[in-house]
C-alpha cells in the first residue's frame, strides 16, 4: 500500500508536484499516467525518499521510506535505467545490494535468471544495451521480494518481446497480491497492463479511477487521456520551457 498525501515539490518558481494525493492498493497494477514533465518521476522519487517534498508526505505501509527497517524487502523500484556503476558487473551490483538488504546471496542468481541476464551477469554493466540495463534495474527491484513495487517507464528500450515480458511480469506481481505502481507514457501499453489509473498533469491529480471506468463511455483510453490532460501538457503548442515544469496556465476542464 502506497499513500501519497498532499505531496508538493517546487523547483524555484515551478511547482513540479502540486498537492497530489492518491492511494495505490495491493493486488492490482496501478498505472501512473501523465504527459512529459507532469511530475510522475518526481512523485516516484519522493515516494522513494530521494527528493524531499516541500509539503505533504508519501507513505509505504504507513511509514515514510526513510523509516523502513528493511527497505529492499518492503519496496522495490526501477526509477531510471542506469542506477549502477558502469564498471561493475550485474552480479556484483546485485550482490552489494543484497548485502545492504540482508538478503541471501543466492537470491542474486535467482533474479538474474528471472530477468534473463544470467549469461551476461559477469560482464561490466556499462557494456549493456538500454534494454539489458532495464532488466538489471528490474532485477534489483525484485531482489528483496518486496510487497510494493514501483516502475518508472520500464519498457523504455525494450524490444516487443521485452515489452510483453514486462506486461506479464507486472500482471503476475499484482496477482501475487503485491502493490504495483507503473508509470508510462505509452497509453496502449497501459490499457493492456493496468487495472487502475492515476492520471496527473502539471503535478496535479486529474483522475484516479479504474481503466474500465475511464473507457466505459465507449472511448479508447487514448481519447480519455487526451480529454483529461487537455491544457495540462507542457510540450504541446508553442511554449518552450527549460525547467521541470511549465508555469501553470491551466485550462478549466
Amino acid at each position: 500500500m502506497i499513500q501519497v498525501q498532499g505531496l508538493t515539490k517546487r523547483y524555484g518558481p515551478n511547482t513540479a508536484v502540486d498537492a497530489l494525493s492518491f492511494d495505490v492498493t495491493p493486488g492490482a497494477v496501478t498505472g501512473f499516467l501523465g504527459p512529459n514533465g507532469s511530475g510522475k518521476s518526481t512523485t516516484m522519487r519522493m515516494i522513494m525518499g530521494l527528493d524531499r517534498p516541500d509539503a505533504g508526505q508519501a507513505l509505504i505501509g504507513g511509514r515514510p521510506y526513510g523509516e523502513l527497517r528493511q527497505p529492499l524487502r518492503e519496496v522495490g523500484a526501477l526509477l531510471e535505467a542506469r542506477t549502477f556503476h558502469p564498471g561493475r558487473s550485474a552480479r556484483a551490483h546485485l550482490s552489494a545490494l543484497a548485502a545492504a538488504g540482508d538478503i541471501h546471496p543466492a537470491r542474486v542468481a535467482e533474479v538474474l535468471a528471472t530477468v534473463g541476464l544470467s549469461d551476461v551477469a559477469g560482464r561490466r554493466a556499462g557494456t549493456y544495451s538500454l534494454g539489458m540495463a532495464q532488466r538489471l534495474g528490474i532485477a534489483a527491484a525484485l531482489l528483496g521480494d518486496p510487497g510494493v513495487l514501483l516502475f518508472d517507464e520500464p519498457v523504455n528500450g525494450l524490444d516487443p518481446e521485452g515489452v510483453r515480458w514486462i506486461r506479464d511480469l507486472m500482471r503476475s506481481l499484482a496477482a501475487e497480491g503485491r502493490t504495483v505502481l507503473l508509470s508510462s507514457h505509452l497509453i496502449s501499453e497501459m490499457a493492456l497492463t493496468a487495472d487502475h489509473l492515476v492520471v496527473i498533469g502539471q503535478g496535479r491529480l486529474l483522475a484516479d479511477t479504474s481503466v474500465r471506468e475511464l473507457t466505459a463511455r465507449g472511448r479508447s483510453l487514448e481519447e480519455a487521456f487526451f480529454t483529461l490532460t487537455e491544457g495540462a501538457s507542457v510540450h504541446r503548442g508553442t511554449a518552450h520551457h527549460a525547467g521541470h515544469d511549465a508555469a501553470p496556465e491551466r485550462n478549466a476542464r
Partner: peptide, 30 residues
C-alpha cells in the same frame, strides 16, 4: 516467478554493518 525460495537470514544485522558490507563489495568489484 519471483517467490523467495531462499530462506532469509534469521539474524538481522544493524544498518551500519549492512552498509559496510555493501561498500566493501562495491569497492572491490571495481
Amino acid at each position: 516467478m519471483t517467490t523467495l525460495t531462499v530462506p532469509a537470514p534469521t539474524r538481522r544485522s544493524a544498518p551500519f554493518a549492512r552498509a559496510a558490507r555493501m561498500e566493501w563489495i562495491k569497492l572491490r568489484s571495481l
